[in-house]
Design a protein around this nucleic acid. Structure first.
Lengths: 246, 246
DNA sequence: TTGTGAAACTAACCTATGTAAATAGAGTAA
DNA sequence: TTACTCTATTTACATAGGTTAGTTTCACAA
């Protein structure tokens, strides 16, 4: 059920069988199914639990008063929304599904139990939240400095590696169930320009995006194109020193 | 010493005298002075302590391979860098001073002590880190959706309110010790265009930026211009229910 | 008081990306 | 099949903002 989360956290530290069972339990207590293109939680709502994406894609987004929309991040299986979210009185942005989505709600109590099970779990979850923050910074950089091709390339690299780290990618590519309009909202580009850019990348034989699938023809080239430095994903077993006995 | 931090945290929850003393102690243990325009910690370094800005301005930034630079956030007095930062093996970005800066290093142990003093302190610090994350998302939105005038207006609103929430602003405006080139790095605009935009705002009598000081002539108008919604700063005493006795 | 370097400002020109409006496919419910 | 609705694609044209290469202003050290 929460295999993706476990896989991802193991990039930081090795989790014992007990740890894994605790995570699986927490991730299967209250699971709900959301249709595609629905709001999961809306700006202004009171957040009441931490959410784990078990299956499907979702995104965080916010509208400006005049209707422009910015997607500020994607959620893929294994992703958790902000750990301490219930400290806030209300959401300052919304989360919506892109595909059909399975969500596990983790109550405050379950979360506390979970983090009490072992130091390693607690630290792995904090590590994950630091990585989320780093990802958000990287999006800021992406929008601030990169041009259209670089920007989309960077996004593709990121989503590929993130899914890979959760055991959700193949060698050739990964799922990418995002329309061109949504891609535009995520990259700050118009749909027209997203379309132009995709065609350019396709004819340069960098990537193909078709049928909700991203095929990467040459990852190294794509990373170079995007000036993609994976350091911000902190995938190198940072917490190896925490590999304690069970 | 850490008055700014205490003032800011009180936006979330009322802190007891004991809480305040603990914060002051933690914020004055190891204080160092950094000259203007120096790196405080550099991409690749191993983060070893949590840093609290006691005085002066700093920024987070990252270079792309080809030399472009994006400033992804400003630090003003009372700001803390990521609470769990020592979980990471190395920094994925740098932090540099803008002015002369006073920094309090808070060791892992001091931090644990601090968060052990009271639930309220711990929660206030977690609240602060959620707000930082929200700020980062808002920067993403700013760069993705707003044009030059809106973007700079938004930044000015944010920095004014953030300083105000730490007791560091006046009715007329606040400090703003940032050069136009740095403003460009923060907003993703060229210096030339930053200059054009500032002049436009000045002649529209929205703001004046001179001598490291930002004067806001009409905050409401500026906020409207920027489509600035302060909700993401969560300044409304979210944790009022935690106002326990001493 | 002059000299120096950084910061602010200007001007001319260029281009990446946006806008508007229409067409073409693809998927699906009836 | 038809009809309907998303999604992808195309074309023509407009513009915000970038680039280059200056000049001016200002703080302040000598």
């Amino acid at each position: 059920m929460s295999q993706a989360l476990i896989r991802k956290l193991q990039n930081f530290v090795k989790l014992s069988a007990t740890d894994q069972r605790a995570l699986e339990r927490a991730g299967s207590e209250r699971v709900r199914r959301i249709g595609p293109h629905e709001d999961i939680i809306r700006e202004g709502d009171k957040p009441s639990s931490v959410m784990l994406i078990v299956d499907g894609w979702a995104c965080r987004y916010k509208y400006l008063e005049d209707g422009r929309r910015q997607i500020v991040g994607f959620f893929v299986p294994g992703d958790i929304c902000d750990l301490n979210i219930f400290l806030l009185k209300e959401m300052d942005h919304s989360i919506g599904s892109l595909t059909e989505v399975l969500i596990a709600d983790i109550s405050r109590e379950s979360l506390e139990t979970l983090m009490g099970v072992s130091q390693r779990i607690a630290q792995a979850l904090w590590w994950d939240s630091l990585v989320s923050l780093a990802i958000q910074r990287e999006w800021t950089i992406n929008l601030g400095q990169r041009d259209a091709v670089e920007r989309m390339s960077h996004l593709f690299c990121e989503m590929f590696l993130r899914q890979q780290s959760a055991g959700r990618a193949q060698i050739s590519g990964c799922e990418f169930p995002v329309t061109q309009a949504e891609l535009g909202d995520a990259t700050g580009l118009s749909t027209v320009h997203v379309n132009r850019t995709l065609q350019q990348m396709r004819s340069a034989e960098m990537i193909t995006l078709h049928n909700k699938r991203l095929v990467i023809h040459d990852l190294d080239a794509l990373m170079r194109q995007a000036m993609f430095n994976p350091n911000y994903l902190h995938l190198g077993r940072d917490g190896a020193h925490l590999d304690a006995n069970d």
